[in-house]
Design a protein around this nucleic acid. Structure first.
Lengths: 146, 146
DNA sequence: CTCCATCGTTGACAACCTCCACGATACCGA
DNA sequence: TCGGTATCGTGGAGGTTGTCAACGATGGAG
């Protein structure tokens, strides 16, 4: 990979971060395309599936680091395909809880298999200890950057 | 940061990668805004500055992981501001070498100072050894993902 | 009750990514 | 020398993402 060497940006962590991130996202998107999903929608679906009581759109925006207006569209698409449904919250009538349907949960299972398999190529070569450390470092970077 | 805990995506390296990357890019963009630059243009400028003989647009696309058509626009913008110039290559008349002007080099100095200072918040808390390891891991991920 | 914050939603706009097609040039094999 | 094939830069189309401002509806504090 001679293109890698000798360039100053190769030392820039920010650059390496975005380049690696882009590569992984591309790979994941390709794997999810067969299910008609992109990473963004897939992330929302996963979060909805794992929230037993449903999850607020505001929470989705916070966790995903997205603008709330984007979450509206993502949930619209998922709801339009019957993968997710919006249920009014009894506690706070401003919020609408996003819940996964049975169809959504089934699709999530399939999609997750393909996604993890595809990402196995770039990330599989990391040892468990390395993964843990990487998780820790990335989380610290995110919290520090706000 | 209770929003961090308890969500399944918090364990997904791909997700953490893109979220951390997004945060760093946002921070860098904010720091570069004063110079009228975005990270993309800044990256091109840096590469042009550090290539004594100039750099091919194809090389830029390869190193940055961009489509060649995007590089055209980025170089157009930089050239329009006099930060960079296109010089026909004598060896291969298909290619046009991108070279930084004196103005471009001066701006790069200033911009680099601000950019590194801004990124110091999220990345400064990493020890040198951690940085080296992170660089290595990110590079391996990128090469494996193609 | 009033004032202010929050949630979801809509709209607009810029930036970005992906793909396809073209002319010009280079390279390689017959 | 010629002809096919590949590469470089460029342009354009279409979809996706990022960012910001506004709005109605609701909640909460004083």
């Amino acid at each position: 990979m001679e293109v890698l060497m000798g360039h100053p940006l190769t030392d820039d962590l920010g650059f390496l971060l975005s380049r690696a991130s882009g590569a992984v996202v591309r790979t994941t998107n390709a794997a999810l395309a067969g299910h008609g999903l992109r990473v963004r929608q897939y992330s929302v679906l996963v979060l909805a599936c794992d929230a037993a009581e449903g999850i607020t759109q505001r929470e989705l925006a916070d966790v995903l680091g997205l603008d709330p207006s984007q979450v509206v569209l993502l949930v619209d698409e998922l709801a339009g395909r019957g993968l997710v449904e919006r249920r009014p919250s009894e506690a706070d009538r401003r919020t609408r809880l996003v819940l996964a349907t049975d169809t959504g949960r089934a699709l999530r299972e399939d999609a997750e298999r393909d996604a993890t398999a595809a990402v196995e190529a770039p990330l599989g070569l990391l040892a468990d200890a390395e993964r843990d450390r990487l998780r820790d470092v990335l989380t610290r970077i995110w919290t520090a950057a706000g």
